[in-house]
């Protein structure tokens, strides 16, 4: 590992200034669970590491009538241990409970998971399904980008040099809504998603019809996908096998996976459809019961 400078600013402005001055060779550090390993493996060789954990705005965790604000440096354990989030933004809780083990969850942040922009990142399909928006601060000021438009490819995103993800904002959850994230992994622990599906559904009062739905896919393309057509096939339709099968088929159709050591194209395409149906079923159960229940059925 090469030597680098370390700074721990206490304001967003200072952090942005430090990152801007570093001229592209600075990296923000939240939990460090990706960054430290990447520096060690020489995937990044930063001259400056900017620890962002002391900045108040990046540690915000507020849930209320206006929705949910999540600071970019908030570690996963704060999400999984928050009952309001588990009840309302259940898919995000699902994601945070399966990212790494307990030690990783104590350090790793959702903001970091998003900025690392891995195609198989477990939090991003949930963020997309839950309509999260990125609040980004940079030398030219603040801007907002929907998470669905944040990633641009494997390990790449819309952040420009000097820009910092400050927080994620989620709209409030409607009545009769439910969400779920599940991934397929060959083992039952210690694995990276071969296919990941995040889903949010809103049902009508009867629980028998979709008002709307959002489906997002991970690990089946160069970046996490918002399955727009599959999502639109849910709106206004009855909750039945036919609707679910149609949405699953549409989700499957946009998967453009690769063959690698984690799975084949055939496998990932098939399982995209299978998981979409299974995850929808679970989200529907949650919408009907109003209870998050357990992660796995």
């Amino acid at each position: 590992m090469r030597d680098f400078d370390y700074a721990a600013p206490e304001s967003v402005q200072q952090a942005v200034q430090l990152l801007s001055q570093a001229n592209g060779s600075g990296r923000p550090l939240a939990g460090g669970t990706d960054l430290i390993d990447q520096v060690r493996m020489r995937r990044h060789e930063p001259d400056l590491i900017v620890d962002i954990k002391r900045i108040p705005e990046l540690n915000v965790l507020e849930i209320g009538a206006d929705g949910f604000r999540l600071g970019a440096a908030v570690p996963c354990w704060k999400i999984t241990s928050n009952e309001d989030i588990s009840r309302q933004y259940t898919a995000l809780g699902d994601s945070c409970s399966i990212i790494g083990g307990v030690q990783i969850q104590n350090r790793a942040s959702v903001g970091g998971n998003l900025c690392n922009s891995g195609p198989a990142a477990d939090s991003i399909p949930s963020l997309i399904a839950l309509e999260a928006v990125c609040v980004i601060m940079g030398p030219d000021g603040q801007r907002e980008v929907p998470v669905a438009e944040f990633c641009t490819g494997p390990s790449t995103n819309v952040l420009k040099p000097g820009e910092l993800l400050v927080e994620l904002r989620f709209p409030p959850r409607p009545a009769h809504s439910g969400s779920h994230y599940r991934r397929f992994i060959p083992r039952n622990e210690m694995d990276i998603a071969v296919v990941g599906v995040g889903v949010s559904v809103v049902l009508d009062e009867s629980g028998e019809n979709f008002v709307s739905g959002r489906i997002s896919l991970g690990a089946v393309a160069a970046k996490p996908l918002f399955a727009e057509e599959a999502s639109s096939l849910l709106a206004g339709r009855p909750v039945n096998d036919e609707t679910l099968a149609a949405a699953a088929a549409a989700a499957r159709a946009i998967a453009t996976p690769i063959d690698d050591m984690r799975g084949t194209v055939e496998f990932r395409q098939h399982v995209t459809g299978v998981l979409t149906e299974r995850v929808l079923q679970r989200a529907i159960e949650r919408a009907r019961s109003g209870e998050p229940g357990s992660l796995h059925p």
Binding site: P186, R187, N188, E189, M190, D191, I192, M261, R262
Partner: peptide, 12 residues
């Protein structure tokens, strides 16, 4: 790596 060289864990 032991992430992608998949030996069984106790959960398996």
């Amino acid at each position: 790596s032991l992430l992608d060289y998949r030996m069984p864990t106790c959960y398996d």
